[in-house]
Protein backbone atom coordinates (compact mmCIF):
# COMPACT_ATOMS: atom_id res chain seq x y z
CA UNK A 1 0.00 0.00 0.00
CA UNK A 2 2.70 2.42 0.96
CA UNK A 3 4.88 0.67 -1.55
CA UNK A 4 3.83 3.06 -4.31
CA UNK A 5 5.94 5.86 -2.90
CA UNK A 6 9.00 3.64 -2.53
CA UNK A 7 8.80 2.32 -6.04
CA UNK A 8 11.80 4.06 -7.60
CA UNK A 9 14.22 2.78 -4.96
CA UNK A 10 12.60 -0.62 -4.75
CA UNK A 11 12.67 -1.22 -8.48
CA UNK A 12 16.19 -2.67 -8.86
CA UNK A 13 15.60 -5.41 -6.30
CA UNK A 14 11.96 -5.98 -7.07
CA UNK A 15 12.41 -8.70 -9.72
CA UNK A 16 14.66 -10.70 -7.39
CA UNK A 17 12.23 -10.50 -4.51
CA UNK A 18 9.31 -11.35 -6.76
CA UNK A 19 10.95 -14.40 -8.19
CA UNK A 20 11.69 -15.69 -4.74
CA UNK A 21 8.25 -14.95 -3.44
CA UNK A 22 5.65 -15.56 -6.05
CA UNK A 23 7.00 -18.03 -8.56
CA UNK A 24 8.76 -17.46 -11.78
CA UNK A 25 6.31 -16.09 -14.24
CA UNK A 26 5.83 -12.70 -12.61
CA UNK A 27 9.31 -11.46 -13.38
CA UNK A 28 8.83 -12.10 -17.07
CA UNK A 29 5.45 -10.44 -17.08
CA UNK A 30 7.06 -7.35 -15.63
CA UNK A 31 9.23 -6.67 -18.67
CA UNK A 32 7.52 -4.40 -21.13
CA UNK A 33 7.74 -5.98 -24.53
CA UNK A 34 6.96 -3.08 -26.87
CA UNK A 35 9.97 -1.07 -25.70
CA UNK A 36 12.41 -3.89 -26.59
CA UNK A 37 12.04 -4.27 -30.31
CA UNK A 38 15.26 -5.94 -31.40
CA UNK A 39 17.02 -8.02 -28.83
CA UNK A 40 14.86 -10.97 -27.96
CA UNK A 41 16.84 -14.20 -28.10
CA UNK A 42 13.72 -16.21 -28.72
CA UNK A 43 13.41 -14.62 -32.16
CA UNK A 44 16.51 -16.32 -33.46
CA UNK A 45 15.60 -19.52 -35.31
CA UNK A 46 18.70 -21.40 -34.06
CA UNK A 47 17.90 -20.62 -30.46
CA UNK A 48 14.27 -21.56 -30.97
CA UNK A 49 15.29 -24.86 -32.49
CA UNK A 50 17.68 -25.63 -29.63
CA UNK A 51 15.01 -24.71 -27.11
CA UNK A 52 12.47 -27.04 -28.69
CA UNK A 53 15.02 -29.85 -28.97
CA UNK A 54 15.82 -29.54 -25.28
CA UNK A 55 12.16 -29.47 -24.35
CA UNK A 56 11.34 -32.54 -26.45
CA UNK A 57 14.28 -34.65 -25.25
CA UNK A 58 14.02 -33.69 -21.57
CA UNK A 59 10.26 -33.56 -21.70
CA UNK A 60 10.18 -37.11 -23.04
CA UNK A 61 12.41 -38.23 -20.20
CA UNK A 62 10.13 -36.44 -17.71
CA UNK A 63 6.75 -37.47 -19.04
CA UNK A 64 7.04 -40.87 -20.75
CA UNK A 65 7.45 -42.62 -17.37
CA UNK A 66 4.36 -40.74 -16.17
CA UNK A 67 2.44 -42.01 -19.17
CA UNK A 68 3.67 -45.51 -18.48
CA UNK A 69 2.47 -45.29 -14.87
CA UNK A 70 -0.97 -44.21 -16.04
CA UNK A 71 -1.16 -46.73 -18.89
CA UNK A 72 -0.09 -49.67 -16.74
CA UNK A 73 -2.62 -48.83 -14.07
CA UNK A 74 -5.37 -49.06 -16.70
CA UNK A 75 -4.11 -52.25 -18.36
CA UNK A 76 -5.99 -55.50 -17.70
CA UNK A 77 -4.00 -57.79 -15.43
CA UNK A 78 -3.69 -60.48 -18.09
CA UNK A 79 -2.19 -58.09 -20.63
CA UNK A 80 0.57 -56.72 -18.39
CA UNK A 81 2.70 -59.84 -18.49
CA UNK A 82 3.60 -59.63 -22.13
CA UNK A 83 6.86 -58.94 -23.88
CA UNK A 84 7.32 -56.67 -25.70
CA UNK A 85 4.93 -54.62 -23.56
CA UNK A 86 1.80 -53.05 -24.99
CA UNK A 87 2.36 -49.31 -25.23
CA UNK A 88 -1.36 -48.80 -25.56
CA UNK A 89 -3.62 -51.17 -23.59
CA UNK A 90 -6.19 -52.79 -25.88
CA UNK A 91 -8.99 -52.04 -23.44
CA UNK A 92 -9.13 -49.62 -20.55
CA UNK A 93 -9.67 -51.59 -17.37
CA UNK A 94 -10.49 -50.19 -13.93
CA UNK A 95 -9.98 -53.51 -12.17
CA UNK A 96 -6.71 -52.37 -10.58
CA UNK A 97 -8.42 -49.38 -8.96
CA UNK A 98 -11.34 -51.54 -7.88
CA UNK A 99 -9.19 -54.11 -6.11
CA UNK A 100 -7.19 -51.24 -4.56
CA UNK A 101 -10.20 -49.63 -2.91
CA UNK A 102 -11.60 -52.92 -1.64
CA UNK A 103 -8.36 -53.98 0.06
CA UNK A 104 -8.77 -53.53 3.85
CA UNK A 105 -5.01 -53.56 4.51
CA UNK A 106 -4.40 -50.71 2.13
CA UNK A 107 -7.32 -48.82 3.58
CA UNK A 108 -5.71 -49.10 7.00
CA UNK A 109 -2.42 -47.69 5.64
CA UNK A 110 -4.36 -44.86 4.04
CA UNK A 111 -6.10 -44.04 7.31
CA UNK A 112 -2.75 -44.03 9.16
CA UNK A 113 -1.26 -41.74 6.50
CA UNK A 114 -4.09 -39.25 6.84
CA UNK A 115 -4.06 -39.22 10.66
CA UNK A 116 -0.30 -38.88 10.96
CA UNK A 117 0.08 -36.25 8.22
CA UNK A 118 -2.74 -34.06 9.47
CA UNK A 119 -1.50 -34.07 13.07
CA UNK A 120 2.02 -33.40 11.81
CA UNK A 121 0.79 -30.41 9.81
CA UNK A 122 -1.04 -28.85 12.77
CA UNK A 123 1.74 -29.45 15.28
CA UNK A 124 4.39 -28.26 12.87
CA UNK A 125 2.59 -24.98 12.17
CA UNK A 126 2.18 -24.33 15.90
CA UNK A 127 5.78 -25.03 16.80
CA UNK A 128 7.32 -23.30 13.81
CA UNK A 129 5.12 -20.21 14.11
CA UNK A 130 6.42 -19.48 17.61
CA UNK A 131 9.95 -20.30 16.61
CA UNK A 132 9.79 -18.26 13.42
CA UNK A 133 8.38 -15.30 15.28
CA UNK A 134 11.16 -15.46 17.87
CA UNK A 135 13.66 -15.42 15.00
CA UNK A 136 11.92 -12.64 13.12
CA UNK A 137 10.97 -9.98 15.64
CA UNK A 138 13.35 -10.34 18.57
CA UNK A 139 17.05 -9.63 18.85
CA UNK A 140 19.03 -11.47 21.50
CA UNK A 141 22.37 -13.18 21.95
CA UNK A 142 22.51 -16.61 20.40
CA UNK A 143 19.78 -15.88 17.86
CA UNK A 144 21.99 -16.44 14.85
CA UNK A 145 23.54 -19.55 16.37
CA UNK A 146 20.07 -20.96 17.05
CA UNK A 147 18.95 -20.17 13.52
CA UNK A 148 21.94 -21.94 12.03
CA UNK A 149 21.32 -24.87 14.34
CA UNK A 150 17.71 -25.23 13.15
CA UNK A 151 18.80 -24.91 9.52
CA UNK A 152 21.63 -27.40 9.85
CA UNK A 153 19.42 -30.01 11.51
CA UNK A 154 18.11 -30.96 8.06
CA UNK A 155 21.63 -31.89 7.06
CA UNK A 156 21.92 -34.78 9.50
CA UNK A 157 21.41 -38.21 7.94
CA UNK A 158 18.17 -39.80 9.05
CA UNK A 159 19.42 -43.34 8.58
CA UNK A 160 22.03 -42.62 11.25
CA UNK A 161 19.64 -40.91 13.68
CA UNK A 162 17.38 -43.93 13.49
CA UNK A 163 20.11 -46.21 14.82
CA UNK A 164 19.46 -44.88 18.31
CA UNK A 165 16.15 -43.05 17.83
CA UNK A 166 14.65 -46.51 17.53
CA UNK A 167 15.98 -47.44 20.99
CA UNK A 168 14.88 -44.09 22.46
CA UNK A 169 11.29 -44.60 21.30
CA UNK A 170 11.46 -48.25 22.42
CA UNK A 171 12.57 -47.16 25.91
CA UNK A 172 9.52 -44.90 26.24
CA UNK A 173 7.17 -47.51 24.79
CA UNK A 174 6.50 -45.33 21.75
CA UNK A 175 7.44 -47.80 19.02
CA UNK A 176 4.52 -48.57 16.73
CA UNK A 177 2.54 -45.48 17.80
CA UNK A 178 1.32 -42.44 15.91
CA UNK A 179 3.19 -40.33 18.49
CA UNK A 180 6.57 -41.60 17.36
CA UNK A 181 5.79 -40.83 13.73
CA UNK A 182 4.29 -37.41 14.43
CA UNK A 183 7.19 -36.33 16.66
CA UNK A 184 9.81 -37.36 14.10
CA UNK A 185 7.97 -35.92 11.09
CA UNK A 186 7.32 -32.62 12.87
CA UNK A 187 10.96 -32.26 13.80
CA UNK A 188 12.07 -32.63 10.22
CA UNK A 189 9.57 -30.10 8.94
CA UNK A 190 10.91 -27.44 11.29
CA UNK A 191 13.80 -26.05 9.22
CA UNK A 192 11.63 -25.39 6.18
CA UNK A 193 8.48 -24.26 8.01
CA UNK A 194 10.35 -22.01 10.44
CA UNK A 195 12.11 -20.30 7.55
CA UNK A 196 8.96 -19.90 5.52
CA UNK A 197 7.09 -18.37 8.43
CA UNK A 198 10.01 -16.18 9.45
CA UNK A 199 9.90 -14.80 5.92
CA UNK A 200 6.21 -13.98 6.36
CA UNK A 201 6.70 -12.38 9.77
CA UNK A 202 9.57 -10.28 8.41
CA UNK A 203 7.12 -8.56 6.08
CA UNK A 204 4.88 -7.45 8.96
CA UNK A 205 5.92 -3.87 9.76
CA UNK A 206 7.49 -3.38 13.18
CA UNK A 207 5.40 -0.21 13.53
CA UNK A 208 2.24 -2.31 13.62
CA UNK A 209 3.56 -4.42 16.48
CA UNK A 210 4.87 -1.32 18.23
CA UNK A 211 1.48 0.35 17.91
CA UNK A 212 -0.23 -2.69 19.44
CA UNK A 213 2.29 -2.68 22.23
CA UNK A 214 1.69 1.01 22.94
CA UNK A 215 -2.02 0.24 23.10
CA UNK A 216 -1.16 -2.22 25.84
CA UNK A 217 -1.41 -5.59 24.09
CA UNK A 218 0.77 -8.28 25.63
CA UNK A 219 3.39 -9.96 23.50
CA UNK A 220 1.44 -13.21 23.35
CA UNK A 221 -1.67 -11.31 22.37
CA UNK A 222 0.21 -9.52 19.62
CA UNK A 223 1.20 -12.91 18.21
CA UNK A 224 -2.26 -14.42 18.39
CA UNK A 225 -4.40 -11.47 17.38
CA UNK A 226 -2.16 -9.61 14.95
CA UNK A 227 0.78 -11.57 13.61
CA UNK A 228 -0.82 -14.98 13.02
CA UNK A 229 -4.02 -13.68 11.35
CA UNK A 230 -1.91 -11.49 9.06
CA UNK A 231 0.21 -14.51 8.12
CA UNK A 232 -2.67 -16.89 7.43
CA UNK A 233 -1.49 -17.75 3.89
CA UNK A 234 1.94 -18.55 5.27
CA UNK A 235 0.48 -20.78 7.95
CA UNK A 236 -1.52 -22.67 5.34
CA UNK A 237 1.52 -23.05 3.11
CA UNK A 238 3.70 -24.26 5.97
CA UNK A 239 0.95 -26.67 7.03
CA UNK A 240 0.70 -28.11 3.52
CA UNK A 241 4.46 -28.55 3.32
CA UNK A 242 4.40 -30.36 6.66
CA UNK A 243 1.51 -32.53 5.50
CA UNK A 244 3.40 -33.55 2.38
CA UNK A 245 6.53 -34.24 4.42
CA UNK A 246 4.58 -36.66 6.61
CA UNK A 247 2.71 -38.15 3.67
CA UNK A 248 5.88 -38.85 1.66
CA UNK A 249 8.08 -40.14 4.46
CA UNK A 250 9.39 -43.65 4.03
CA UNK A 251 12.29 -44.43 6.34
CA UNK A 252 10.79 -43.33 9.69
CA UNK A 253 7.43 -44.98 9.09
CA UNK A 254 9.21 -48.12 7.90
CA UNK A 255 11.35 -48.35 11.02
CA UNK A 256 9.33 -46.91 13.89
CA UNK A 257 5.90 -48.36 13.10
CA UNK A 258 4.68 -51.91 12.68
CA UNK A 259 2.22 -53.04 9.99
CA UNK A 260 -0.87 -51.80 11.84
CA UNK A 261 0.46 -48.24 12.31
CA UNK A 262 2.46 -47.91 9.10
CA UNK A 263 1.67 -45.24 6.54
CA UNK A 264 1.18 -45.83 2.82
CA UNK A 265 4.77 -45.60 1.52
CA UNK A 266 6.22 -48.45 3.62
CA UNK A 267 2.80 -50.13 3.53
CA UNK A 268 2.87 -50.34 -0.25
CA UNK A 269 6.42 -51.70 -0.19
CA UNK A 270 5.34 -54.39 2.27
CA UNK A 271 2.28 -55.25 0.24
CA UNK A 272 3.70 -55.39 -3.26
CA UNK A 273 7.49 -55.56 -3.35
CA UNK A 274 9.37 -58.82 -2.98
CA UNK A 275 6.52 -61.04 -4.09
CA UNK A 276 7.07 -63.59 -6.80
CA UNK A 277 4.92 -61.77 -9.33
CA UNK A 278 4.03 -58.21 -8.46
CA UNK A 279 0.55 -56.99 -9.36
CA UNK A 280 1.91 -54.13 -11.46
CA UNK A 281 -1.39 -52.51 -12.55
CA UNK A 282 -2.48 -52.41 -8.92
CA UNK A 283 0.85 -51.01 -7.74
CA UNK A 284 0.80 -48.34 -10.44
CA UNK A 285 -2.79 -47.45 -9.54
CA UNK A 286 -1.79 -47.22 -5.89
CA UNK A 287 1.18 -45.02 -6.83
CA UNK A 288 -1.14 -42.66 -8.63
CA UNK A 289 -3.54 -42.50 -5.70
CA UNK A 290 -0.70 -41.82 -3.22
CA UNK A 291 0.62 -39.02 -5.41
CA UNK A 292 -2.71 -37.22 -5.71
CA UNK A 293 -2.80 -35.43 -2.34
CA UNK A 294 0.74 -34.21 -2.95
CA UNK A 295 -0.22 -32.85 -6.34
CA UNK A 296 -3.25 -31.08 -4.90
CA UNK A 297 -1.20 -29.60 -2.06
CA UNK A 298 1.36 -28.44 -4.57
CA UNK A 299 -1.14 -26.79 -6.88
CA UNK A 300 -2.59 -24.85 -3.97
CA UNK A 301 0.77 -23.52 -2.87
CA UNK A 302 2.49 -23.12 -6.19
CA UNK A 303 3.21 -19.47 -5.58
CA UNK A 304 5.19 -20.29 -2.44
CA UNK A 305 7.16 -22.96 -4.21
CA UNK A 306 10.40 -21.22 -5.07
CA UNK A 307 10.22 -18.87 -2.12
CA UNK A 308 9.72 -21.63 0.38
CA UNK A 309 12.43 -23.80 -1.07
CA UNK A 310 15.04 -21.14 -1.46
CA UNK A 311 14.24 -19.41 1.81
CA UNK A 312 15.59 -22.21 3.93
CA UNK A 313 18.58 -22.51 1.70
CA UNK A 314 19.87 -19.00 1.27
CA UNK A 315 18.66 -16.71 3.99
CA UNK A 316 20.75 -16.62 7.14
Amino acid sequence: MTLETDLPTAAPIAPVADTAGTGVQDASRRTRRPSKPNALRSERPGVRFAAWAAVIVCGGFALLPVYWLLATSLTPRTEVFAYPPQFFPSTVSWEAYESLFTNPTLFNYLRNSIIVSVITAVLSVLVSAYMGYAFSKFRYTGRRALMYFVLSSQMFPQALLLVTLYSVFAAYGLLNTYTALVLSFTTFTLPLCVWMLKGFFDTIPDELIEAARVDGASRLRIIHSIVLPLSAPGLVAAGLFAFVRGWNDFIFALTLAGPDKQTLPPGLVNTYIGEASTAWPELMAASLVVSLPVAIAFISLQRFLVGGLTAGAVKG
Binding site: L268, S287, A295
Partner: peptide, 9 residues
Protein backbone atom coordinates in the same frame (compact mmCIF):
# COMPACT_ATOMS: atom_id res chain seq x y z
CA UNK B 1 5.44 -34.03 -11.92
CA UNK B 2 8.47 -36.29 -11.29
CA UNK B 3 9.51 -34.12 -8.38
CA UNK B 4 6.03 -34.12 -6.87
CA UNK B 5 5.47 -37.85 -6.59
CA UNK B 6 6.61 -39.51 -3.36
CA UNK B 7 10.01 -41.22 -3.37
CA UNK B 8 8.56 -44.71 -3.10
CA UNK B 9 6.41 -44.05 -6.16
Amino acid sequence: IPWLVPGVV
